[in-house]
């Protein structure tokens, strides 16, 4: 039985769902960021699999995946810097306790 495109798409869909569950249900800001990284990885698997099976003449999927990896690194850096700054000021990084609005 050959490994087809559907196998990779199912794996990336399940990985995306796990990342989505992590983002929606965790309290700690760093744990939410880990869920986001899982979702970005699922998108990368999707892109590279589609490049290999549907459009193998060029490497556009690889290029797109590399740009996503770069932007994921940028977003992780800025997000974690925000988490550190929030921890220093508010003494907590549980997102349901961070509420500095007046009402």
């Amino acid at each position: 039985m050959r490994v087809g495109l559907e196998h990779y798409l199912v794996v990336s869909a399940v990985l995306f769902g796990l990342g989505l569950y992590g983002v929606l249900s965790r309290r700690n800001a760093v744990a939410i960021l880990m869920g986001i990284e899982l979702m970005l990885n699922a998108a990368n698997v999707n892109l590279v699999a589609l490049n290999r099976y549907v459009a193998p003449g060029a490497v556009a999927g690889h290029v797109f995946a590399l740009v996503i990896i770069t932007l994921a690194a940028c977003e992780a850096a800025v997000g974690l810097a925000l988490v550190l700054a929030a921890y220093r000021t508010l003494e907590t990084i549980h997102v349901d306790e961070i509420n500095v609005m007046k009402w």
């Binding site: 989505l20 929606l24 349901d96």
Partner: peptide
């Protein structure tokens, strides 16, 4: 506690999304 109050709706939403996507 590491999970917030949205745990079960979050699980339902993620599972539903994965099912639709697959």
């Amino acid at each position: 506690r590491q999970v917030n109050t949205q745990r079960w709706p979050g699980l339902a939403a993620a599972a539903g999304f994965v099912a639709a996507l697959v």
